[in-house]
Structures are given as C-alpha cells and as structure tokens.
Amino acid sequence: MISQQATPAEPLRSTRRRTSARWVVLPVRVLRSPMALPCVVIIVIFAVCAVLASVLAPYSPREQRSAEALESPSVKHPLGTDNLGRDMLSRMMYGARVSLGIGFGAVVLGLAVGVPLGLIAGYQRGFTDEVIMRLMEIQIAFPGLIFALALVSTLGPSVRNLLIAIGIAGVPGVARLVRAQVLSVRERDYVLAARALGAGSARILLRHIWPNCTAPVIVAATLSMGYAVLAEASLSFLGVGVRPPTPTWGSMLQFSFGYLSIAPYLSIVPGVAIFLLVLSFNLLGDALRDALDPSLRGR
C-alpha cells in the first residue's frame, strides 16, 4: 500500500495528486536535515550487506580456519575472527540478515495488523472502536519485552516466533496512532464530500482517509525498526533468542561477553553495529517527523 502511494503514476484525483507531490518533496526535505543523510547511508549499507551477504561476504559464515582463531582485525579479516576462526565480517553480514529481517518482518507484521484495526476503530467509532481499543489496552498491559519473553518461552524460540512476538507487541502503538489520525480527518470537508457523493466506506477509508495517515505511520515504523533490532538483542541475551548455528547480532554480542578480556573487538563489532543501526533509525524517524509535519519541527 505504501509503495503504491509512492509511485506518482496516474494522478487522477486531487487528493491523490497532492500526496504524490508530497512523496516527491519528502526525500528532499528529509535529507535537508543534517543528521538524516548519514543515517540513510548507514541503513542502506547495512541493508545491502544483509541482502547481498552471499555475494559480498569474503567467507562463508560457517567456514572455520582453526589456525586463524581469535585474530584481531587485519587485511585478511577486516573485523577479526572468532574463537573458531570464523570471519567476523562475514558473520556480521549474515547476522544482519536475521537481525534486520526480524526487525523488518516485525514492523511489517505490526503495521499489517495495527493499521486496519486503527482505521476501522477510528472510522466506525462506537462499539467497534470500544472493542478494538480495549483489546489494544489489554495488549499494552504486557510490556514488549515481557510479552515477547512469555510468548517465546511458551511457543519455543525460533526466528518466526521471535518475529511474531516482537511484531505483535508493536500492534497497539500503530493502531492507536492510526485511529487518532483517522479521528482528526474523518470530519474534514473532502471526506464528507466523498461520503455525500455516495462513496462506500472502504473507498473512503482507502482513498481519502488512509493517505492522510501515512506520514505518522512511516515515522512510527522507522522508530520501531530500531526498537525491534534492540529487542532481538535483548532476547538473545536473556537466552530466548535465535538458536545457533544461525548468527544474529544479538547472539554474537551476547556470546562475545565471555571473551572481553581475550578479544575485546568481538563485542565491539556487534555492539557498535547495533548502536549505529538503532541510532540511525531513531534519528531518521525524527528527521522524517520534522519533514512530514513542519509544525512539529524542533519539538
């Protein structure tokens, strides 16, 4: 849905044309913020590493050269090797797949469930709204990490269950955000006009209301990417993360603590990667918010 909006093709309706224009201006505005460009660059680099790990990684993440165990960074192994002689750079790249994958998947899941709920609650109001909002309150009662811990410890840890746990924990935030946005636009003239012209509910929601909700949703999604990456790391630390032999940043960081005195770079590499990625998502989220809603700039 988002990508559809992003294509400035067939500008048929006025509202549509307005949004298309905004999608052209947006990147320019975002990048005008001094912090945004480096953030985008970092995220893109990590994403490319993740997607193209099998092409870019100098070694297989499993290949063990026991004679080269625990080597500090060098030309041969730019980020050093772990105690089994595996190349850290390659493992980081493959780890990015899982860590970013869980983050991205969880955010998509949160949006896929949260957006429709928010739209319906805000548009229908009344009893439906009450039911959905109470459901969201119930969900919010369980802090994200606790919810994920409870779910993963019940269902057993796997990439899929981790993704579901982190994703569902993000639903109420999205739903509340979208609902608030819907409430603020549903009585606007163009919506009332569309309704007067006999447009169906679905059409009004999708064509007229939803485009006005995208901005805050994009901001929230960007911010939750950072949260999801951190959540993966925390769950790994608590022992309910993705199981070896699959490398993830969280499990690599957790493992590296044992080697702080012998090989400090082992924890610096995943630690810095997590920090940079989360920081980038957070700063980019802020920049997006400023760009999408100039009235909030500097707030």
Partner: peptide, 27 residues
C-alpha cells in the same frame, strides 16, 4: 534554550541513550 548547542546535545544524548542495549551498558 531551544535549538542551542545544549538543546542539540541533550536531544542527541536522549536518542543515543535508547540505542545502546542495556545489558551491554551494564556489563
């Protein structure tokens, strides 16, 4: 002191603070 260097520093720290895994910080 909105938009001063102090404001920027505080904002920056606030964003950075939530980007560090707390278990790493603890150790």
């Amino acid at each position: 002191w909105r938009n001063s260097w102090l404001d920027r520093l505080i904002t920056m720290l606030a964003v950075a603070a939530v980007a560090v895994p707390s278990f790493w910080l603890a150790i």
